[in-house]
């Protein structure tokens, strides 16, 4: 065997795959002919006008360098740095998400602790949960009358379900033995909730939170394409309208990177609250 660790070998393989992928992509794009080489016919039919083709990775890299070296410039409503756009999106996601957590976790506790609450609320949850968050958009726009708040509402409504359901499930599944320990030590209900039930259910709750943040990040792009103005979703759409595919590809990559970072953050939290029985 090689002396390299598994991680190192995997990293080398990833790097090779990346380079190979980029090279194939680069080679697959037909080079645009320089103007001097065009035939008369081509000039007449307009083929010489730089066509909006899929750009090669080299162009995307140049774009990325350009954008990332000055991410926060602001030159009017249609020309803001990628950092500002992502900042708007993250702000919306976190606001809607925090509101959802604020509602879902206590409500999930209640549902998990009380079979009556579970039975009473379950039909509502079952009907509301499968609704695509974007289906709420027109109603939200009409009622709230504000595109910013509507986008936040859509994030709220899509992140609430995984957190609610996982919290209820986690709380209901706390082992009776552990609750009995709290009972024999005469802990009051609030203390029991915080020192026994919350840590016991935390891994399940955080899993729900992790799923929610993933969904919220998926939904914000679509929501911003609809409401417009600012945000990474709007940016993608706007660059598409400008036929600037280099920027489109670059922003798609940025959406992926930010989503990965958000997920990693919750992965970290998940590791912090995990325990072995």
């Amino acid at each position: 065997m090689t002396g390299l660790s598994l991680n190192k070998r995997a990293a080398i393989l990833s790097f090779i795959l990346l380079i190979a992928g980029l090279l194939i992509w680069e080679a697959a794009i037909p080079a645009q002919k320089a103007v001097g080489e065009l035939t008369e016919y081509e000039i007449l039919t307009g083929a010489g006008v730089p066509k909006a083709g899929v750009p090669p990775p080299s162009e995307v890299l140049v774009k990325a360098w350009e954008q990332l070296s000055n991410p926060f410039y602001d030159a009017g409503p249609n020309d803001k740095g990628i950092g500002i756009q992502i900042g708007y999106s993250i702000y919306r996601v976190l606001t809607g998400y925090a509101l959802a957590a604020f509602v879902a976790i206590p409500l999930g506790f209640l549902i998990g602790m009380s079979p009556v609450a579970y039975k009473a609320l379950n039909p509502f949850i079952q009907v509301l949960r499968p609704i695509s968050p974007l289906a709420w958009m027109p109603l939200a726009l009409f009622i709230i009358q504000d595109s910013e708040a509507s986008a936040i509402f859509v994030i709220f409504i899509c992140s609430i379900w995984p957190m609610l359901i996982n919290t209820a499930f986690g709380v209901a599944g706390v082992r009776a033995d552990w609750v009995n320990v709290a009972r024999t030590h005469e802990l009051n209900p609030l203390k029991t909730a915080f020192t026994v039930i919350l840590p016991a259910a935390a891994p399940t709750i955080v899993t729900g939170m992790r799923i929610s943040i993933g969904i919220a990040w998926l939904v914000i792009v679509a929501a911003e394409m609809l409401v417009g103005g600012t945000g990474i979703g709007y940016y993608v759409w706007n660059e598409w309208n400008n036929l600037d595919l280099t920027s489109v590809i670059f922003s798609i990559l940025m959406i992926g990177v930010v989503g990965m970072l958000l997920d990693a953050l919750f992965g970290l939290l998940q590791r912090r609250v995990a325990y072995v029985e």
């Binding site: 024999t184 005469e186 609250v273 325990y275």
Partner: peptide, 18 residues
């Protein structure tokens, strides 16, 4: 109901794993 006056050592230990 339970009370601190009655201490229990459970058959399955019932330690809090976290």
């Amino acid at each position: 109901g339970p009370s601190l006056d009655r201490g229990v050592v459970f058959q399955n230990y019932s330690l809090l794993p976290w």
